[in-house]
Design a protein around this nucleic acid. Sequence first.
DNA 1: TATAAGTTTTGACAAATGTCAAATAATGAA
DNA 2: TTCATTATTTGACATTTGTCAAAACTTATA
Lengths: 191, 191
Amino acid sequence: MESTQDRIKFILQQFCPVSDTTVHLIVPYLEKIQVKDKELIIKANIKCKYVYFINSGLVRSYYTGDGKEHTTWFGVEGDFVTSFYSMFTDQNGYENIQMLENSELFRLKMEDFKKLVKENVELNQFYIKVLELGYIYWEKRFMLLQIHSAKDRYHHFMETNKKAGVKIPLGILASYLGITQETLSRIRSEY
Amino acid sequence: MESTQDRIKFILQQFCPVSDTTVHLIVPYLEKIQVKDKELIIKANIKCKYVYFINSGLVRSYYTGDGKEHTTWFGVEGDFVTSFYSMFTDQNGYENIQMLENSELFRLKMEDFKKLVKENVELNQFYIKVLELGYIYWEKRFMLLQIHSAKDRYHHFMETNKKAGVKIPLGILASYLGITQETLSRIRSEY
DNA sequence: TATAAGTTTTGACAAATGTCAAATAATGAA
DNA sequence: TTCATTATTTGACATTTGTCAAAACTTATA
């Protein structure tokens, strides 16, 4: 079983280089938690208190609009998770973050995370990298929705998310792709 | 006529507080340029060499997909402009940035901008703010496209972009909204 | 001003996707 | 295992938006 130290170093390194000094700096602030399938770690309409790193498991982010749930993102091992809008503005967020299976996470108080980002150059770089990747994520996602058909979007998702794709329930995947579950069911049955 | 100093200070302050020291630091790197209606300042498939601040005018960003132009963003006075993907990755960008009227811009070499962001805390904060606003921009834009009809998206745009909205040619606005110009023409004629 | 070039509107029809309702299938708890 | 619950599939039809072609309008310029 790997130490928190090693796991966090591994996770941070996926984003940008970090020294052991920086890892030592952040570790005391981390708390390891287990969360069960279907539970929420972040709820809409409240200020988000933590940022998380996924040690293992699968999560999704979704918001509610016209009575339906719209999935915006899936998180897997190594991903950084929080309500970005709430983090940026210190106001209530609009997304819920829910486990799609039993998962293990590291969490870190939002205020501590912000303090560390201000004080430590490498964590500042980490934060910038998270923002840059997030920017690209949404820009790509927008372009896919704008110019590709439902069928293309489905196949593109399954191509680029081979592992997670098969574990995600149809209704949730449909809401991620921006289509109804009936349409997704029909797309799947065409093959 | 205001000095470059004053204008840049005003523009930067729209994002976050900056001291005169920081303004003095950045000004020597800036070059003021005039660009004519329809000209491109950033072209797809090459590395983007500059970042820009719009002093006056109106610009759009677009990319080409399935033979059509897809407008992604409109920039007005005070906006920060560049090819974000190219800036993040140092690779070729995919967007073109074009004047929609004669405009005056400040430009700054990409390498100088990156150096300043590394060296100066306030400009680091400025860069983070640009990224945070960009993230929110795309997330919102995605959500609008995912859950609202063409008509709703049009009205929402005209509401939130009163000044720019009326200056934008129908075909370009349609491509921003993700619909054909025929559909936008019909939406407009309904009132 | 006349002409050409570009932009917007209109019409007829096609394609993609949504809606609602019901039938089936899968899953989990007693 | 069995029942209840939840998830998925299927069918019939409605709605939204796209496509293609032509007409009308606007703008710039020779």
